[in-house]
């Protein structure tokens, strides 16, 4: 228990929704947004919590941070129960909601940071050191004195990240921190998180729809669908489990009549009037495929396509029950 930053057992959250049936009648219905999640995260881990819209990601995060009251199940974050010990826990965790601001809208960014120093009761020397680090790593220099409402989304998000880290939290919860950001800001945020994760003293739970975030940052992925965990493991495990393979695309000068079969690989498609052949590799190597085809005719181009997380996730999202 002491080693775990987050431990969750049988977590459920049910909402009652009223649905219109007929002209006036409404039907009450109980919907489980989170339907029995178990999760153990060790100190210093960075875990990607992914899943389609409405899978229960945000709801889980809100229960872990003490915002929502769980219907059932046990939660321990930093050894505390989030709802009963919300205020105490808040001093030890940092939270960033991509679609909400924790900053003071009408005040300059610098003043928000100063307010948070008082809210979290951080000694000013410590505060100054951490702020200096964030200023450097997140490049806040140009806009510290601008009211938050006038910041661009990318600037604001860098501000939000700083705000969540100034009290040196043990666990950082990030709910879609890169949503809506431009490429440059996205990379800045990603690089910053990678650095934070590498130092290893902050546990990070991240929800995202951005596959580049996942590939770059998350060694461990927890995939949730319809309120349940459907995968918990590395990105490689996910590929292995859902049968994502490397593919090899071969362009020939002239179409060939037959003999395209290669042991250890299967033909996925033949296009461009027989001049482009796509194989999926099972046991064979790309070299074997190329060697075989070279005997059939002259090759114009060969490319190897690495398995794409996008495909895996898309398959996960659409298949429903996996």
């Amino acid at each position: 228990m002491a080693e775990l930053a987050i431990e969750v057992r049988g977590l459920r959250k049910e909402f009652t929704v009223r649905r219109k049936v007929g002209r006036l009648r409404r039907q009450r219905q109980t919907v489980a947004a989170v339907a029995g999640v178990d999760l153990s995260i060790e100190r210093g881990e960075l875990v990607g919590y992914i899943g389609p819209n409405g899978a229960g990601k945000s709801t889980t995060l809100k229960m872990l941070t003490g915002i929502l009251y769980p219907t059932a199940g046990e939660i321990s974050v930093c050894g505390m129960q989030p709802v009963p010990q919300r205020a105490r826990l808040a001093r030890r965790i940092g939270v960033v909601f991509g679609q909400r601001s924790a900053l003071w809208w009408d005040l300059p960014l610098r003043e928000s940071f100063d307010l948070l120093r008082h809210v979290h009761r951080v000694p000013s020397a410590e505060h100054a050191t951490r702020l200096a680090t964030c200023r450097r790593l997140l490049d806040l220099e140009g806009f510290l004195d601008i009211p938050v409402r006038q910041l661009s989304l990318g600037q604001r998000m860098r501000g939000e990240l700083t705000a969540a880290l100034l009290h040196n939290p043990e666990v950082l919860f990030l709910d879609e921190p890169t949503i809506g950001l431009d490429v440059v800001s996205r990379q800045a945020v990603r690089a910053f998180l990678a650095e934070l994760a590498m130092r290893g003293d902050t546990t990070i739970l991240l929800t995202t729809h951005d596959l580049a975030d996942i590939e770059r940052l998350c060694r461990r992925l927890v995939v949730i669908d319809r309120g349940r965990v459907v995968h918990d493991g590395s990105l490689e495990d996910l590929h292995a489990r859902y049968g994502s393979r490397r593919r090899i695309v071969v362009d020939l000068d002239e179409p060939v009549a037959g003999g395209l079969d290669v042991p250890g690989a299967s033909i996925e498609s033949v296009t461009a009037e027989g001049r482009r052949i796509t194989y999926t590799l099972h046991r064979g190597t790309a070299g074997q495929v190329v060697a075989r085809l070279a005997r059939l005719g002259s090759l114009r181009d060969v490319s190897v396509v690495e398995p794409d997380i996008e495909d895996v996730v898309a398959r996960l999202y659409t298949s429903g029950s996996v």
Binding site: K62, T65, A90, R100
Partner: peptide, 13 residues
């Protein structure tokens, strides 16, 4: 608007 979330994540009443 869900702004209450931001209030709930601060260590104050």
């Amino acid at each position: 608007t869900g702004l209450l979330d931001a209030v709930l994540i601060r260590p104050l009443g």
